[in-house]
Amino acid sequence: MLLTEMAPPPGAQEVAGLRARVRTARRGALVALSASIALLATAQLLADRAATREHALPLAVLSLAVFAAALPALAITQYAWGARARLVRQRERELYAAARSGRAHPLTRLAVACGWAVTLLLGWTVPRFFREAAMYAFADALTWAVEALSVISVAAGVLFLLWWARDALGILARALRSGGSPGDPWDPGHGARPREGAALWTGAAVAVAALLGARAHLWEPATGVIYALLTAALVCGVVTDE
């Protein structure tokens, strides 16, 4: 009997469903991260180009609103992603005595942490836009809040780096001892799955990077180009099924 004609072992279909849920949660977390950075960068770019204080104030408010919404959105989506990933790794260990879904986690976690850092850095500049809009008292209050948040963020970043290094070394040590995961014939693995979404994610990443470059004054795109980049970042992330 061919392998493809054999019934899957007990639990294989459950693990396949859990892996699908992880991919869905990962997509949601990445969409939230890329959209947050793109929206923040765009709002701040437009605020920089505002001709008057009256025009700058709505954009400053928009920037603050996006930042305030981004923090819980990132926390919730990434918590859901992590919880589902832990569940599937636990089930894989029960069935196969090894977790196939944990190989790239150190690099993924580091990339997500960099996304958090970029989001926070953009958020820390929000008080300046209120000050330029002549909202001095509110800008001072925001500055105090941002300074408190920055201290918490730096402490969290140090703790993350220590935890990440320990976790990465642990994964490397386990891989060297076991020689790698034995695999699972009923799951073709990442290499055999369709990769149509890779081009869309690349487009979203390029658009977000271009907006960040403009925000850092590395180049000066026209306003229409900024809107086009924002649209590309949002559409590429939303329409991808990967």
Rank of each mutant, 00 (worst) to 15 (best):
T24P: 01
R26Y: 13
G28W: 10
G28A: 09
A29F: 02
L30N: 09
A32P: 06
I37C: 08
A38Q: 04
A38G: 10
A38F: 10
L40A: 08
L40S: 12
A41E: 04
T42P: 05
T42S: 12
T42D: 05
T42H: 10
L46M: 09
D48S: 07
R49T: 00
R49N: 06
T52K: 12
E54V: 01
E54Q: 11
A56H: 01
L57N: 03
P58T: 02
P58K: 02
A60G: 09
L62A: 14
L62E: 09
L64R: 14
F67Y: 14
A69E: 10
L71Q: 15
L71V: 15
P72S: 12
A73Q: 14
A73C: 15
L74V: 07
A75N: 14
I76E: 14
A80E: 15
W81S: 14
A83N: 10
R86F: 08
L87S: 06
V88T: 12
V88N: 11
V88G: 13
V88I: 08
R89H: 10
R89S: 13
R89N: 12
R91I: 02
R91C: 04
E92H: 11
E92S: 09
R93W: 07
E94K: 02
E94L: 06
L95G: 00
A97K: 03
A99H: 08
A99L: 08
R100C: 06
R100L: 07
S101Y: 02
S101D: 08
G102H: 03
R103V: 08
R103G: 11
R109P: 05
L110V: 07
L110H: 11
A111M: 09
A111S: 15
A113I: 00
C114Y: 00
G115T: 03
G115A: 12
G115V: 01
A117V: 13
L122G: 02
G123M: 05
T125P: 03
T125F: 07
V126F: 03
F129C: 02
F130W: 04
F130P: 00
F130H: 04
R131C: 03
E132G: 15
A134N: 14
M135R: 13
Y136P: 00
Y136N: 08
A137E: 13
A137F: 06
D140P: 05
D140Y: 11
D140E: 14
L142V: 00
T143F: 10
W144P: 06
A145S: 14
E147P: 04
A148L: 15
L149I: 04
V151D: 05
I152T: 13
I152P: 03
S153V: 06
A155K: 09
V158P: 06
W163E: 13
W163M: 06
W164D: 08
A165N: 07
R166D: 11
R166A: 14
